[in-house]
Computed example of a mutant assay.
Amino acid sequence: MPQPHSAATLIGSVQRAMRLLESVAEHEHGAPAKQLARETGLALPTAYHLLRTLVYEGYLRREKGLFFLGEAAERLGSSGAAQKRRSTVADTLAQWRDSIGVPVYYARYHDGEIEVMCVSDTPGNPAVEEWADFRETGHAHAIGQCLLSQLDEDARRDHLDRYPVQPVTRYTVRDNHTLLGRLERIGRMEPVVERQEYALGTVCAAIPITLGATVGTMAISLPARQADRLLLAARQLQSEIGRKLGSIGLCISI
């Protein structure tokens, strides 16, 4: 009766397969099995077996006797790159959170929707609770107003056709016409401020970010009792964005 593979044997097989993948990745124009076996120090029969398995699983592809990275391996690489971009943005927001002493948000307008991509807060300075869907209440919060202010008139009206203005608190703008007028008056690079329009007891400010086709914003929030800090904190954030935008621009534009 065949004995089950030991853990050491299974781990060894994975290690050998990973060495082959790494070796293939170093050859842009492909490499034959014999060369890969030699570079990884594997016996040729072992290398052949692992290479066939990796081709079958989609991690490699074989063309005219040469092995190349397959779609599955490329997806892994893309996922890793995306994770690194998210980590870079999260780390940057955390630095701003700590230096300014406020929760910091990154959001974008993508495919007709408001998307909050990252939030950095602390127990002492918590983020605003999303008690009403951010996508549907863009008229009521600084993030949404900032994003909508960067769109052209047709895109704004399309958004409001799908998500019409409705009361969220007693301070919320009351109708589409009033909101559109407000958006028209927002300066191109001015912070967008709202006071208790989305959540009672909270004031927010958002800074517009436009990179290529990406419409985005960085925002902060404060308890209403600290409203006198809001504009100063927003200017601090704007200054930090100006210093860091070059290094994180690619991360937030993809």
Rank of each mutant, 00 (worst) to 15 (best):
P2K: 00
T9D: 10
T9A: 12
S13W: 15
S13E: 15
M18L: 08
M18D: 06
L36P: 06
Y48S: 05
L51I: 12
E57W: 05
Y59F: 14
E63Y: 09
K64I: 05
L66D: 07
A72W: 12
G77T: 10
S78H: 15
R85P: 00
L93C: 14
A94C: 00
W96D: 15
V102W: 09
Y105P: 10
H110V: 04
H110K: 07
D111P: 01
E113N: 05
I114D: 09
E115W: 07
V119E: 00
V128C: 14
E129L: 15
G138P: 01
G144V: 03
Q150L: 07
E153D: 15
Y163F: 13
Q166T: 14
Q166W: 14
Q166I: 08
T169K: 12
T172F: 08
D175S: 05
H177W: 01
R182C: 03
L183C: 10
L183P: 00
I186S: 04
R195M: 12
Q196K: 03
Y198M: 03
L200M: 10
G201N: 04
G201K: 05
T202Q: 08
C204K: 12
I207G: 04
A213H: 00
A227H: 11
L232G: 09
A233T: 14
Q236Y: 07
G242C: 04
K244G: 10
K244C: 12
L245Q: 14
G246C: 13
I248P: 00
L250E: 13
S253Q: 11
I254G: 00
